[in-house]
Design a protein around this nucleic acid. Structure first.
Lengths: 205, 205, 205, 205
DNA sequence: CATGAATGAGCGTTCATTCAT
DNA sequence: CATGAATGAACGCTCATTCAT
């Protein structure tokens, strides 16, 4: 699309994206019709197609916006921290924070992964997230903070733990982001058999 | 439904479920029409509605069958092994094996989780899987094999690592199930900072 | 589409084509909605798409059926007549007869020529008609019945005269096919300045 | 509409008509949206509706302008030639010239004839063209240059030959207007069996 | 004069489900 | 048991036209 928009147009577009995000997350992408979106905002159908080429394009835009925002949040959280493991930890904490205030996006991404039309969009985002995590892991390996491993696989494992605890504990049980982050970090650090000496106190080490 | 079926009917039903599993996994549930299913098998539409009340019911049956089969495979794999950590490891290995030969099911479950109509079906299966894993973890805690933790959270973390490496390494990269299982177990045992002494050789310890 | 149809299905399909031909001719292709067609026959919308892939496909089928039928009528009319000019004349007469009882088709073909989506369908029919006519002209040239000319151009001119008089006299003024055929043949034989000798061709003078 | 326009307004209107003519001819009237027209000229929608009441009105204006221009070209070509048959020939030649440099209009007129909303506009133009041709034919009959015939029918036949050769040879094969005009005139003079005496008319033999 | 956001009726098409045969 | 024709609500989308700015 890439239409040049007036400020008012920009606002309308954001309104549409926000409302759609909520409806898609609550009702599902397929079960949410364009009619439902425009009716919900009290505008005509044409409005939708003035701002988006299709329902699919809207969804992809939502995804892209979300992925960008999460990544930005992570970079800002890491800031100028220089200790590799601490950087990884900050990244994990910031994503938990971000997901806890963007629950809808989590749902949408999970869905998008199951739909061929969104696969390419999703794969791209996943590659970026993996590359970011892998880099943090590799730094830790290079400085000897963690034993030498396959950084890709380890990065994926970290993302897996984050992802499932975000889903079950954060979104499902609505527990505080920082508590869940503690658990993710604890498990990622020591696994099952490792012996955390004092758990929490160690967490920013 | 729960219709009493002749042996031939039973076979027809299985044919339908098998074909549907493949089509749903390849094309998506929504994009696969009932017409496509019956045409693909060269039968009339009536056949479908003789064996299933609806497309939705068919999908739920597929899910239930799959979950049952996976669970059975795990119990058989654990057998009469009595060391808690070894039991957990056998469970992980057997699920990797199972997913590697039931890739379609993995795809279907990921999708089902995103669809309100299948949520209850999925939640039930997940609760069972979690309870099973949690029990294995708790046994390990009770025998002192692993430090005392929140067994639920830890069990979820284990499932998360399994799940994501199954998706990326097993389904995505089509690597051997046993290699991926090694990686899952390694990460789950020691996390990032733990020091595996020789990895592979340890794996049945 | 090419669905295998039961006799009843065949009948339905014909009903749809017949009704659509009439509506398209009367109201225009674009102004006639699929809804209008199925409502007019008192059936559900699905019926239409059971028999045709799209509105466009239906139209193309109508065209093809018509072209085939006209061509068959011409071949039957020519029969075993062996004098070249007489063969050409029989072809002209039979097309006039055919158009006079298939006025709708004439309208549809004129429209189809103006629409990119039907162009290929139409061009094919026109090539066939031109080739047929050209062959008849060439035979007449070969036997010396008419002077040597560019058979293609002459064939096109004959078709042009036929076409315009069919449109204006036959369809517009609803004059008898045989009268219009006389005029076409008269003009094609002698042009403007030639002096028709036989009574038949002169009768509208 | 009939708005009084400033010179700049007049230019804008012509720009719109010219662009629309090209787009309609290339893409079809129905497939060319008002949005496409104004976007193509880089102006807003308001501009369009300032100069034209509707898309339909624009099209009718294009038609009328074209018909007027063709007629003017013919009258100028005939000039003060006094021999009836020569006048007819000049008219034919000039229309071929005109169509060869206004191919878009030809396409538009063919389309307009198939659309009820433009029928009246087209019929009027055709009546004028027929009347003009008929008058030329009648003059030739009156002076004995051609045998007595039904001038209307003969005029239509002449228009038919002109029309189809314009379409197939001029627009389709892009041959020179004068060559095609020769063929039209040749066929109209002598028909199929007549024997053309002069060299010019024979040149495509 | 000009912009471009907004309207909304209407379109072609899909598809889970039903049911006469 | 099985067929396949039929249903019809619902969908994504288009576009000529209007009008506040």
């Amino acid at each position: 699309m890439a239409r040049r928009l007036t400020p008012r147009g920009e606002q309308r577009r954001n309104e549409l994206m926000g409302f759609a995000t909520a409806r898609f997350a609550a009702n599902g992408y397929h079960s949410t019709s364009v009619a439902e979106l425009v009716d919900g905002l009290g505008v005509g159908k044409g409005v939708f197609y003035w701002y988006f080429d299709s329902k699919e394009e809207l969804f992809i835009e939502i995804l892209r916006d979300g992925e960008r925002a999460l990544r930005r949040a992570q970079w800002e959280a890491i800031g100028d921290e220089s200790v590799p493991l601490a950087r990884l930890e900050l990244a994990i904490r910031s994503s938990m924070d971000w997901w806890s205030s963007h629950r809808d996006l989590y749902v949408l991404i999970e869905f998008a992964r199951t739909e061929a039309s969104f696969a390419s969009s999703i794969r791209k985002g996943e590659r970026v997230a993996l590359a970011d995590t892998q880099k943090l892991v590799q730094e830790a390996i290079d400085t000897g903070a963690i034993p030498d491993r396959n950084a890709v696989v380890v990065a994926q494992a970290v993302l897996g733990v984050s992802s499932i605890l975000a889903r079950t504990q954060l979104l499902g049980r609505k527990r505080p982001a920082s508590d869940v982050a503690d658990e993710v970090i604890d498990f990622c650090r020591h696994g099952l058999v490792g012996s955390p000496t004092d758990g929490r106190a160690q967490r920013t080490a």
